[in-house]
Amino acid sequence: MITTPEHNERIAKMTFASVYPHYLAKVEKKGRTKEELHQVITWLTGFDEKQLQGLMDEKASFSDFFSKANVNPNAHLITGVICGYRIEEIENPLTKQVRYLDKLVDELAKGKKMEKILRSV
Rank of each mutant, 00 (worst) to 15 (best):
70 N>H: 14
31 G>D: 15
57 D>N: 03
103 K>G: 02
49 E>L: 02
13 K>E: 08
78 I>W: 14
77 L>D: 10
84 G>F: 00
64 D>W: 08
119 R>E: 13
58 E>M: 03
21 P>A: 05
16 F>V: 05
20 Y>H: 08
121 V>F: 12
70 N>K: 15
73 P>E: 06
88 E>V: 02
51 Q>M: 03
44 L>T: 05
68 K>S: 10
41 I>P: 05
119 R>A: 12
79 T>Y: 15
10 R>A: 14
3 T>I: 13
13 K>D: 08
111 G>K: 08
30 K>D: 14
51 Q>L: 03
3 T>P: 11
51 Q>D: 02
31 G>I: 14
16 F>K: 04
100 Y>K: 03
50 K>C: 04
69 A>S: 14
7 H>P: 11
7 H>D: 14
109 A>D: 10
62 F>H: 04
45 T>L: 09
6 E>S: 10
71 V>H: 06
29 K>H: 13
1 M>I: 10
112 K>T: 03
79 T>D: 15
42 T>D: 11
8 N>C: 09
98 V>G: 05
12 A>C: 02
67 S>Y: 05
79 T>A: 15
25 A>P: 01
40 V>F: 09
68 K>F: 11
1 M>K: 12
17 A>I: 08
99 R>A: 09
23 Y>N: 01
51 Q>C: 01
46 G>L: 08
67 S>W: 05
70 N>W: 14
15 T>V: 06
121 V>D: 15
41 I>M: 12
71 V>Y: 07
45 T>M: 08
34 K>L: 09
19 V>D: 01
53 Q>H: 03
43 W>A: 15
102 D>F: 09
73 P>F: 07
85 Y>Q: 04
114 M>E: 00
26 K>F: 00
56 M>Y: 07
